[in-house]
């Protein structure tokens, strides 16, 4: 059973989002997604300062047997990326919701309400 923290928001493409106090939103991939992918060997992060709209491919996570696009879950500007992943992509495997975050976004619209909550996401991955 993979972990689905209740305080986060989720997408069907297995990204999670956390609204931070400073108005930024942190994005990563779910425990379920990292388990499906297996040992991650490479993460291609977006550049800080880039703006994306919802649904854009913004990042690639790669394991030995698969490479998967990460889709921008909300529109906004990338303000920070998790540089540690460049050398240690396996952090995503060991800590998908904490140290394994991918990037932080400054949202350009209020789209968080449209996303799945933990219960909905849990139901989604149980299917």
């Amino acid at each position: 059973m993979s972990e689905v923290p209740s305080e986060l928001k989720y997408t069907e493409s297995h990204e999670w989002l956390r609204a931070e106090d400073d108005g930024l939103v942190t994005v990563g991939i779910s425990d379920h997604a990292q388990a499906l992918l297996g040992d991650l060997v490479f993460v291609e992060l977006p550049e800080a300062g880039t703006e994306f709209v919802t649904g854009d491919e913004c990042c690639v996570v790669e394991s030995v047997k698969a490479a998967s696009d990460v889709y921008m879950p909300i529109s906004g500007e990338i303000v920070a990326v998790n540089e540690a992943l460049a050398d240690e992509p396996e952090i995503i495997n060991s800590s998908p919701y904490d140290n394994g975050w991918l990037f932080k976004v400054r949202p350009s619209a209020n789209e968080m309400a449209d996303l799945m909550d933990a219960d909905a996401y849990q139901a989604e991955i149980d299917e």
Binding site: F42, E62, S63, V64, K65, A66, A67, D69
Partner: peptide
């Protein structure tokens, strides 16, 4: 680096 290749990445 097989994740670049067609048998895994298909249309991408």
């Amino acid at each position: 680096l097989q994740a670049r290749e067609q048998h895994i990445r298909r249309s991408k």
